[in-house]
Amino acid sequence: MNNPPSKEELITSIIKFLEDDVIHELKGQKRFHAHVAKNSLSVILREIQLEESNNKSEKERLEKILRTNDSIKKMNKLLCQNIDNEQIDISDNHLIDHLFKTTMEKLSIDQPSYSSFLAEKEK
């Protein structure tokens, strides 16, 4: 095991550095890119915290819908095939519920300030 700082602390320190010292010093495209870089680090930070539990619940739901046990990647491929060839109806409640939950989990990492994410969370 490595010595501290933890990966979370390292990333947080870079985010702060970009925010406090870098972004406002830059102009035009570089400023935009530095801003994007900061946001990407925030995504990584949230992913470190949430990835495991998100993937676990996505996998459980996929297993139930597809009645099989495989990697998330392969099960998503199968789910897409089932939607394409209409083995699963697109108005199926379990499917819709699963997709809502999975998408909300994705957004909790990618973009938790997105308007539709916030509106959906309030429901």
Partner: peptide, 11 residues
């Protein structure tokens, strides 16, 4: 990573 924004809008 902005693709998931459109996923929630689509749903």
């Amino acid at each position: 990573r902005r693709v998931s924004e459109t996923e929630i809008d689509l749903l």
